[in-house]
Amino acid sequence: MTDSASHPASPASTQKAPPSRLREFWSSFKENRGAVIGLIVFLGFLFVAILAPLLAPYAPDTQYRDAQLVPPFWQEGGSTRFLLGTDAVGRDLLSRLIYGARFSFFIGLLVVTLATSLGVLLGVIAGFAPRWLDTLIMRLMDIVLSFPSLLLALVLVAILGPSLLNAMIAIAIVLQPHFVRLTRAAVLTERSKDYVIAARVAGGRPIRIMFRTVLPNCLAPIIVQAALSFSTAVLDTAALGFLGMGAQPPTPEWGTMLAEAREFILSAWWVVTFPGLCILVTVLAINLMGDGLRDALDPKLKRS
C-alpha cells in the first residue's frame, strides 16, 4: 500500500510541503469566473482612482462656458474634445467621473474600516462579556438594525450636518451592527473549542485570548462582510449625495453628480447615465468579488 502511494508521485511533489493557505485560497477563488471579473474591474477602478490626475483630460471643476451640455463624441453635436460630453455648467464629464472614482474608494475604505473596527471590537466584547453586557450590546444593535438603514443615515446626517465626512460616519454607524452580530456569532462558536482552553491553561490573559487566539479564527466571515459592505457604503453615500445630504457640490461624487443632473434627465441623457453606470459597475464588481471571497473562505460552501 505504501508502494502505490509513493511510487507514482513525482519526487517534486513528495518533497513539497502542502500548499500554503494563500495558494489554496487563490486556487478556489479563481474557479469562480464572476469573482475574477469583479476583481479585475475593481482593480481597474482602483488604478483609475490612484492615477486620476494623470488620466483625466481636465480638472474636475473647470467650467467651459462655451460648451454646456455637449453630448458624447459619437452623438451629433459632440466632439472628441469632451469624450463623454459636458454637464450643465460646462465641466468635462469624463474628468469628473475619473475623479469621482477617488471619492468612491475613499468612502468605501473609510466606512468599511470604521464599521469593521468598531463592529469587531464590540462583537468580541459581546462574545466574551458577562450576560448583562452581552444583552445590552446586542439589544442596542437590534435597535439600530430595526430602522431602515438609509432613513437612519438621513437622520444622523440631519443631526451632524450635511457633508461627505458626516455622511460616511452615519453610514458606518448604520453598517456596524452587522459586524457586531457576525463577530459575536463566530466568537461564540470558537471560544468553547479546546485550543482556547489550552491557551488559558498556558497562561493567556483574557485580552490576549480574545484578540490573539480567538479573533484570527473568526476573520473569514468578517472579511466577506467587509467586502460586501464596501459596495453598500458606495451605494448609500451616492444615495445620500443624491438627496443632497452627502457630498456637496462641486465635489465630483457620483451620487451628487446624479442629483445635480436630475433636471436634465429628459434633455441630456448622458449627464445622468454615466455616473449611474459607474455606480452600477463598481457595486456589481465588488459584490461579485465578495461572493467569490465567501466561496473561497468558507469551507462549507466549497465545491469539491
Partner: peptide, 12 residues
C-alpha cells in the same frame, strides 16, 4: 492538560 480531540486542541 492534553485534550481528547487533537483536531480542536491546536489553534489553526
Amino acid at each position: 492538560i492534553v485534550f481528547q480531540d487533537p483536531y480542536g486542541s491546536l489553534n489553526p
